[in-house]
């Protein structure tokens, strides 16, 4: 089953104008889909679809107040859609749409849609670094940072869900959809990746009571840690609220910086995530501050030493 990962996530929001401004400032590009819907896309065309929560074009809401309405997965080929349709039709209703995509609910009632992926192939360099002992990645006169340097989300990376019954959910995504568990934070839940994606995770499940079911956060890959810092710094300066980070996770090794949003979930910039293949053996660690990050930093206003005592450096 050649599932690649989320192409986009659909939200039904109560503050449409606020959400539009937010997504644009986050670095996503608006594409109007129809009279009432907008896709905000990363550089590869993955992203977030928003509509007002009363829009009849939206799939049904979750029983909670969470605004996530649907996860849209991209797959490599039509054969994968056929296999998923056959497998799901065993015990649930599957809708085949005119464009060939299929829709159904997972075992806990999350709305899913699978389609041949719409993501565009990216061809751009990762952040380059220079270090003694290794060949220089940036040649002579090639600068690492400059004012106005681009720092835009490249691709929708992962989705984190609050799930009331984690065993059912894991069984459904691994046995029925072919996801692989890469690591487990005991007390929270597992990281998963689908078969056609070597990223450490496209999904992470967190065990919660039923009244919390929904999306906890979603993340976009950046070109590297510097782009992540630059994007987060610019976003903070525009008045947006940091929630956690910047820092670097242990499982997945990805840099992270999370922000609150009017979609009622966190939006995360991430960068430089580990890759895995089927030879990998999942690790397990108790969930908590130690296991969840290598280090954690906090944004502050620009400051520099200066204006000190007589004879010292002048600010």
């Amino acid at each position: 089953m050649r599932i690649i990962g989320p192409d986009y996530l659909v939200f039904g929001v109560d503050d449409l104008e606020g959400a539009k401004t937010y997504l644009q400032d986050f670095g996503l590009k608006p594409v109007q889909l129809d009279a009432t819907g907008w896709l905000y896309e990363a550089l590869d065309g993955t992203g977030v679809v928003i509509r007002h929560r009363d829009d009849p074009r939206l799939p049904a809401p979750l029983p909670t107040k969470n605004m996530l309405r649907q996860q849209v997965f991209g797959v490599e080929d039509a054969a994968t859609l056929d296999v998923i349709e056959a497998e799901m039709s065993k015990d649930r209703r599957v809708n085949r749409l005119a464009d060939g995509a299929i829709e159904f609910q997972d075992v806990l009632g999350f709305e899913l849609r699978f389609q041949i992926t719409t993501r565009r192939e990216l061809n751009m360099p990762a952040e380059k670094i220079n270090a003694p002992g290794a060949p220089a990645q940036r040649g002579p006169n090639e600068l690492g940072v400059w004012d106005g340097m681009p720092a835009l989300p490249r691709s929708l990376s992962h989705v984190v869900l609050f799930v009331p019954d984690i065993d059912k959910m894991v069984e459904f995504y691994t046995r029925r959809l072919g996801f692989v568990i890469t690591d487990i934070l005991t007390g929270a839940g597992p990281f998963l990746r689908p078969a056609a994606n070597d990223d450490h995770h496209t999904h992470f499940f967190i065990r919660t009571p039923a009244y919390m079911q929904g999306c906890e956060h979603l993340a976009f890959h950046m070109g590297g840690p510097t782009e992540l810092m630059v994007a987060g710094d610019r976003f903070t300066r525009k008045g947006y609220q940091s929630f956690w980070g910047p820092g670097r996770h242990k499982f997945g090794s990805n840099w992270f910086w999370y922000f609150n949003s009017p979609l009622g979930v966190h939006f995360e910039y991430d960068a430089d995530m580990d890759k895995h293949d089927d030879a990998w053996v999942a690790r397990e660690a108790p969930n908590g501050p130690e296991a969840s990050q290598m280090f954690l930093l906090q944004w502050r206003e620009k400051w520099a030493p200066g204006g000190g005592p007589e004879g010292g450096p002048k600010g």
Partner: peptide
């Protein structure tokens, strides 16, 4: 808040 002073729901 999600942005400075944005504390209320929609």
């Amino acid at each position: 808040a999600w942005r400075r002073d944005a504390y209320l729901n929609g």
